[in-house]
């Protein structure tokens, strides 16, 4: 359990620095089990900061979403740092972006929090449907203590965690400037059980499955916008000349979009599951990402977002790289 007072003190200290523009963290959401990103611009703002298993968002998306609107005459660009609160998985996104030189190390202050698993909002809302006003969720070893309207229930973590947390190998931030609380030991291992099971299906079964999924896509691009690694200046689907993907929403274009996104994240996806969480249509996007992650791990012994000094997968070459897939 994270000491929220310690978190607030750290945020206060960070935002008090002259070279920090703002700190992004979490605050309580507006209803039920929601937590929501929040920003501290001045020391008092730190008071609303929280950290609980409901803090599911990967906030590293915010430095990447920084907009640079045209400056007025005489106005200087604000080049101060951004403070970001990160969990283990979130920190890997920063590492990956640093590796790709999408961000400079001295432009972020990383406030790390060890995390032993968050709660999938869909799962907990299904368990406690309806009109919930006051909730509190605490982390208690292998259980979540969920208090709803004054009654506390202890629920095994496996029942409420998203898939990524069940096999998380990096509960501690891999890179941070300040660490809150103590590092966690974890024996969890990514075994790709679901990918392996899916691989066994016939080609037709797999295609039918994905057709059904992609048919649901409404191309709102929530997957892209919630993803910290989708930070292209202009996304391929937005380009008009040439237009790579048509605006028509149909199976063909939807498939093009979802597959091109999966491939553009090959060797870059750090598995934070934000795309799947944000998808309003419930498309299991992590199934695609995990499959690619597994292949890359097996073929190139590479894992995204572990070391900022390493070169990105697609920017390095080893003479003994396997090449059976080249026709």
């Amino acid at each position: 359990m994270v000491d929220e007072k310690e978190l607030r003190d750290v945020v206060k200290k960070t935002i008090s620095r002259d070279d920090v523009k703002y700190v992004v963290g979490y605050e309580k959401g507006t209803y039920g089990f929601q937590a929501t990103p929040c920003f501290a611009y001045k020391p008092e703002d730190a008071e609303k900061f929280i950290f609980s298993p409901l803090c599911v968002h990967n906030l590293t998306v915010f430095p990447m979403l920084e907009e640079k609107p045209p400056l007025r005459k005489g106005e200087e660009p604000d080049t101060r740092k951004i403070g970001v609160v990160v969990k283990g998985c979130d920190s890997r996104a920063i590492v990956q972006i640093l590796q790709e030189k999408g961000l400079e190390r001295d432009k972020v202050v990383i406030i790390g929090i060890p995390c032993s698993g968050v709660i999938d909002p869909k799962k907990i809302e299904a368990k406690f449907p309806g009109h919930i006003k006051k909730v509190e969720v605490n982390d208690e070893d292998d259980k979540f203590a969920v208090t709803v309207d004054g009654k506390t229930q202890k629920i095994p973590k496996d029942e409420l965690m998203p898939e990524k947390c069940k096999t998380c190998e990096y509960p501690n931030p891999v890179l941070y400037d300040i660490l809150i609380g103590k590092e966690i030991k974890s024996k969890k291992k990514e075994d790709y059980k679901k990918v392996n099971a899916f691989e066994k299906k016939s080609m037709k079964e797999k295609w039918d499955y994905w057709e059904k999924q992609f048919e649901k896509c409404i191309r709102c691009y929530a997957c892209r916008n919630a993803c910290p690694l989708c930070y292209c200046k202009e996304c391929m689907v937005d380009q008009l000349n040439p237009q790579w993907v048509r605006r028509s929403v149909n199976l063909s274009e939807n498939t093009a979009w979802n597959l091109l996104r999966a491939f553009h994240l090959a060797g870059r996806c750090i598995g934070c599951e934000q795309c799947e969480r944000a998808c309003p249509m419930g498309i299991p996007l992590m199934k695609l990402n995990k499959k690619i992650e597994k292949e890359i791990k097996e073929m190139f012994e590479y894992e995204a977002g572990i070391s900022a000094e390493e070169k990105p997968l697609l920017a390095m070459f080893k003479p003994d790289d396997p090449e059976e897939f080249i026709l």
Binding site: F39, A222, N225, A278, P280
Partner: peptide, 20 residues
Amino acid sequence: FKCVGCGTCTYLCPTCHCFD
């Protein structure tokens, strides 16, 4: 400021009606 800029709110809104 926390908006990530996706179109979920508008596409799922029963009264939004903008088109291209």
